[in-house]
Amino acid sequence: MKHFFCFVLIALTGSAFAQKSKTSGNPIFEGWYADPEGIIFDEEYWVYPTYSDAYEKQVFMDAFSSKDLIKWKKHEHIIDTAAVKWANKAMWAPAIIKKDDKYFLFFAANDIQNDNEEGGIGIGVADKPEGPYKDYLGKPLLDKFHNGAQPIDQFVFKDKDGQYYMIYGGWRHCNIVKLKDDFTGFEPYDDGSIFKEITPESYVEGPFMFIKDGKYYFMWSEGGWGGPDYKVAYGIADSPFGPFERIGVVLQQDPKVATGAGHHSMIHVPGKDEWYIVYHRRPLTETHHNHRATCIDKVEFDENGYIKPVKITFEGVEKNKID
């Protein structure tokens, strides 16, 4: 009960601050949520997070939408284990992509520890970003370990040529696979392989990739997700296959603001040099590993294209409607 009142106090304080300063405030919405995927659909911001609780209670996912980054609308239970018969716990780290007027929600489930357990990475499909999502394949898209990578923390990346890739992996290994056009499986590379490892130095989990000025930026989480040392680092390459040499840390805790800042995504406002990082962190009042809240802050680049270290804030970001 004490933790509940602390969280309500923080949420109310953030809300009051946001109203006064016309910023989003951090966290951007109430509740324990982690691993957020931020994206823009039809001139509206969307965030798809993990529901942060005990594995056995992670049986659904909510989504949040906003037209201005200030006011957020909650869309409850956009997918759950009732719709995905093979999933029974630990629904994690949604990745969302729109293709051919359909919305595909990639997720991990069951936290499998070996190739003999049921679970892995699956896909939900819907006609609207808020769902409801139904099981696209009726089975996992990926349910085995390859190159040591646990099948979790998937991110779907569309390259400049229109090819879709899935970048994924826990247990300190990261793979990139070429998705079939209908997302029903994987296409082999020219050398006949399917799973290419692109693991950079200090990688743990939470991959994310984007293109800026013709360069491929690869970002990942380091440290332990339940501890204060969780953080985000990055590298840059000329190809989605790397090699990605670790450049440095761009997101980490601030003992005056919050701990455990990590597992992020990036939002780029179309047609503008405006970038945001959406991530989770642990309020200073909390020590429980699942007490994680979703936040947003600005991202800036220097004259050489390197990402400037992000300052995590209580204020969040200013109002920004998409033209």
Results as ranks from 00 to 15, higher is better:
residue 1 M to D: 02
residue 1 M to E: 12
residue 2 K to C: 01
residue 4 F to R: 15
residue 5 F to R: 11
residue 5 F to K: 12
residue 14 G to N: 11
residue 17 F to Q: 13
residue 18 A to M: 00
residue 27 P to M: 08
residue 30 E to W: 15
residue 33 Y to D: 01
residue 35 D to N: 06
residue 36 P to G: 04
residue 40 I to K: 11
residue 47 V to L: 12
residue 64 F to P: 05
residue 66 S to P: 02
residue 68 D to G: 00
residue 70 I to W: 05
residue 72 W to F: 08
residue 80 D to R: 05
residue 84 V to W: 09
residue 88 N to V: 07
residue 96 I to W: 00
residue 96 I to M: 13
residue 103 Y to S: 00
residue 107 F to Y: 09
residue 111 D to Y: 03
residue 117 E to K: 10
residue 119 G to L: 03
residue 123 I to K: 11
residue 125 V to N: 06
residue 127 D to T: 05
residue 128 K to T: 15
residue 128 K to I: 01
residue 130 E to T: 06
residue 134 K to L: 08
residue 135 D to G: 01
residue 136 Y to F: 10
residue 136 Y to H: 11
residue 137 L to R: 14
residue 140 P to I: 08
residue 142 L to Q: 05
residue 144 K to H: 07
residue 147 N to H: 12
residue 149 A to R: 06
residue 151 P to A: 11
residue 156 V to F: 06
residue 157 F to M: 07
residue 158 K to L: 00
residue 170 G to I: 13
residue 174 C to V: 09
residue 177 V to Q: 09
residue 183 F to A: 09
residue 184 T to N: 15
residue 186 F to P: 08
residue 189 Y to K: 14
residue 191 D to G: 13
residue 191 D to P: 10
residue 192 G to T: 03
residue 195 F to W: 10
residue 196 K to M: 04
residue 197 E to H: 08
residue 197 E to A: 14
residue 200 P to K: 15
residue 200 P to D: 02
residue 201 E to A: 08
residue 210 F to Q: 06
residue 211 I to V: 14
residue 211 I to T: 09
residue 214 G to H: 15
residue 219 M to S: 15
residue 223 G to K: 15
residue 226 G to A: 01
residue 227 G to R: 13
residue 230 Y to R: 04
residue 231 K to A: 14
residue 235 G to A: 13
residue 241 F to N: 03
residue 241 F to P: 01
residue 244 F to W: 04
residue 245 E to L: 12
residue 246 R to G: 04
residue 247 I to C: 07
residue 249 V to N: 09
residue 249 V to G: 04
residue 255 P to L: 01
residue 256 K to I: 03
residue 258 A to S: 12
residue 263 H to V: 10
residue 264 H to A: 15
residue 267 I to H: 13
residue 269 V to S: 01
residue 276 Y to P: 00
residue 276 Y to R: 07
residue 280 H to M: 14
residue 280 H to N: 02
residue 282 R to V: 05
residue 287 T to G: 02
residue 289 H to Y: 12
residue 295 C to I: 11
residue 298 K to P: 00
residue 302 D to C: 04
residue 304 N to R: 12
residue 307 I to S: 05
residue 311 K to C: 04
residue 311 K to F: 14
residue 316 G to P: 05
residue 321 K to S: 13
